[in-house]
Nucleic acid binder design. Sequence first.
DNA 1: TTCGTAGTACGAAGATTGTCAAACCATGCT
DNA 2: AGCATGGTTTGACAATCTTCGTACTACGAA
Lengths: 113, 113
Amino acid sequence: MSHTGRISPGRQPEHPESGQIRLETVLSALADPVRLRIVSDLARGHQDMACISFELPVSKSTSTHHFRVLREAGIIRQYYEGTSRMSRLRTEELDACFPGLLAAVLHAQGVRV
Amino acid sequence: MSHTGRISPGRQPEHPESGQIRLETVLSALADPVRLRIVSDLARGHQDMACISFELPVSKSTSTHHFRVLREAGIIRQYYEGTSRMSRLRTEELDACFPGLLAAVLHAQGVRV
DNA sequence: TTCGTAGTACGAAGATTGTCAAACCATGCT
DNA sequence: AGCATGGTTTGACAATCTTCGTACTACGAA
């Protein structure tokens, strides 16, 4: 883990910019139990987790799908670290777009903010 | 509007109780442009509107569908007044279940709370 | 270079969703 | 009674979503 962390071209996942994040897309992304759990886990202090460490009740490919939905909605940011794909919540950006939204969702999920 | 407002049996729409309202269902219900607009319109002081007065860009039956989704999610309460079905936001109950959620969504929609 | 690990890509199957038109029902008015 | 209005029900269709297994790629370690 001491080197560059080089990434092969075409492996940088696409993220929407803050200004492009749409409310409906965010709500839609959060309206799924698996994704809601991913978001809750991330907020519970497990920032920058690899996909594998979530222990989701779905297959690998389904897992990839859900992370992509969250990423394309603008809810998480992902980057590679070795073969692992790390995820973190885009908390500040999301709060700038939709103040209080993520906090309300997390609070409803029992995550203390 | 001076009389009893009698309702034929079987026409009282079913609503979930406060305790039965689920976050995922609420998020899912709000993740649609037509329904988001209905909720915004209701919040913009048009409480207790008949379905007809929303001027939605969909057919009658689709309109019925969206109002049902909102009602079954616990977001609106509906009752009959003559042949009209009136709707109102379940603001307090929703805020008791998921504090700040509706406010955040409405704020993101440009509705001042 | 060979192998294992972490994840992605690609169908495909099945369920859900948003939409409509047509037929229907309930209420109020004439 | 008859009619107009507001809404519901039904059935259909297309699109999207969730899920999976299989095959594949990228990286790190031996």
